[in-house]
């Protein structure tokens, strides 16, 4: 568990840095903001994928096969 938590912290720290850069550049036009936001989201996804193997259940094949629910409602 410990390494996961550290990774997560690091990714939120890098988000923070980017936010500061955006702030110091003044108020950019809307299109540029959107583009920057898109880049930031991509970077976040990259961070998540870097650690994805630690987060995903070990045996996906077996786990998915075993996830059977009764209908409800």
């Amino acid at each position: 568990m410990m390494p996961e938590r550290e990774l997560k912290k690091r990714s939120s720290a890098s988000r923070q840095d980017e936010g500061d850069v955006a702030a110091s550049a003044g108020a950019p036009p809307e299109a540029a903001t959107a583009a920057r936001q898109g880049e930031r989201i991509k970077a976040d996804l990259d961070d998540l994928l870097d650690e994805i193997d630690e987060v995903l259940e070990d045996n996906a094949e077996e786990f998915i096969r075993g996830y059977v629910q009764k209908g409800g409602e």
């Binding site: 568990m1 998540l48 994805i52 987060v55 995903l56 259940e57 996906a60 094949e61 786990f63 998915i64």
Partner: peptide
Amino acid sequence: RRLAMLDLQYHDLRPERSL
């Protein structure tokens, strides 16, 4: 199946597993 696992874990309520 790893994609199906991502799909399911999007909805996982455990903080350490929730995507």
